[in-house]
Amino acid sequence: MLLGVVALVFIVAGFSPASFAEQSKRLGAWEVHYNAFNSTLLRAEMASQYGLSRSETLATLNISVLNANLPNKPAQQVEVSGYVMNPLSQQTRLEFKEVIEGDAVYYLTQTRFTNLETLRFFITIKQGNESHELRFHKEFWAN
């Protein structure tokens, strides 16, 4: 199952696994996989399929949440919300789109950046009474 979700992330990103920089973090019972990349790395047909845009200064964020405590780590439907902060501490709210394909569930959003800008992401993941925050930063550059 995990390989299926990771494979879908490769497909959405539209580039080879060798160049893929996916990260994951254990948050409670969840294994959260996340990837932030320049939207120009998306193939045009993939961007169109998922209702995403492509631009030199547009970042795409992909998140999938797996239940780390169960065999085969099944994908989880969760509530995902959050914001991104630029180096001037300006915040932009992120609007996530849920994508379900077979057993895979992932959440996509996009945000603007300026060349060589490091963005800090603050993502809240909720399911029932369980809630965790994923925090990470990523430097982006225009292609």
Results as ranks from 00 to 15, higher is better:
69 N>C: 00
139 E>R: 15
14 G>H: 00
119 L>I: 00
86 N>R: 03
28 G>S: 07
16 S>N: 01
104 A>S: 11
19 S>T: 08
41 L>K: 15
114 T>K: 04
143 N>I: 09
102 G>W: 08
38 N>Y: 03
50 Y>A: 15
115 N>R: 01
27 L>Q: 05
89 S>I: 10
132 H>V: 06
11 I>L: 11
4 G>T: 01
61 L>S: 10
105 V>M: 02
118 T>V: 00
117 E>M: 10
63 I>Y: 02
5 V>W: 04
111 T>C: 14
34 Y>P: 01
36 A>W: 03
30 W>I: 09
77 Q>D: 12
132 H>W: 10
59 A>Q: 03
66 L>D: 02
68 A>H: 14
32 V>W: 05
81 S>Y: 10
19 S>P: 00
78 V>T: 09
9 V>K: 09
16 S>D: 11
79 E>D: 13
74 P>Y: 05
63 I>P: 00
1 M>V: 05
138 K>E: 12
102 G>H: 08
137 H>D: 15
84 V>D: 11
12 V>C: 03
135 R>Q: 14
95 E>L: 12
1 M>E: 09
61 L>H: 04
105 V>C: 12
130 E>F: 02
67 N>R: 02
58 L>A: 15
47 A>T: 08
7 A>N: 07
2 L>Y: 07
58 L>F: 00
128 G>V: 04
16 S>V: 06
26 R>Q: 09
132 H>M: 12
115 N>L: 03
14 G>M: 00
22 E>P: 10
58 L>G: 10
108 L>I: 04
132 H>A: 08
106 Y>C: 15
42 L>Q: 08
139 E>V: 04
2 L>N: 05
139 E>N: 11
65 V>K: 05
105 V>P: 14
98 E>R: 14
111 T>S: 10
143 N>W: 09
64 S>E: 05
111 T>D: 14
10 F>V: 05
89 S>A: 11
88 L>E: 14
18 A>S: 07
3 L>Y: 14
70 L>Y: 06
29 A>C: 12
17 P>V: 03
121 F>R: 10
2 L>C: 05
3 L>Q: 06
91 Q>M: 08
141 W>T: 06
69 N>V: 05
101 E>C: 11
35 N>D: 10
139 E>Q: 13
71 P>N: 07
135 R>G: 08
133 E>H: 11
59 A>R: 11
54 R>L: 06
3 L>M: 13
77 Q>M: 05
29 A>E: 12
132 H>K: 10
34 Y>S: 00
85 M>F: 13
130 E>H: 01
31 E>Q: 14
61 L>K: 12
103 D>E: 15
103 D>R: 04
74 P>D: 03
24 S>L: 07
20 F>Q: 13
66 L>E: 00
113 F>K: 08
72 N>A: 03
16 S>P: 02
13 A>L: 04
93 R>Y: 07
89 S>H: 07
142 A>E: 08
108 L>P: 15
107 Y>H: 12
106 Y>R: 12
19 S>G: 14
123 I>M: 02
124 T>C: 02
118 T>N: 05
44 A>Y: 10
109 T>L: 01
53 S>D: 15
38 N>H: 12
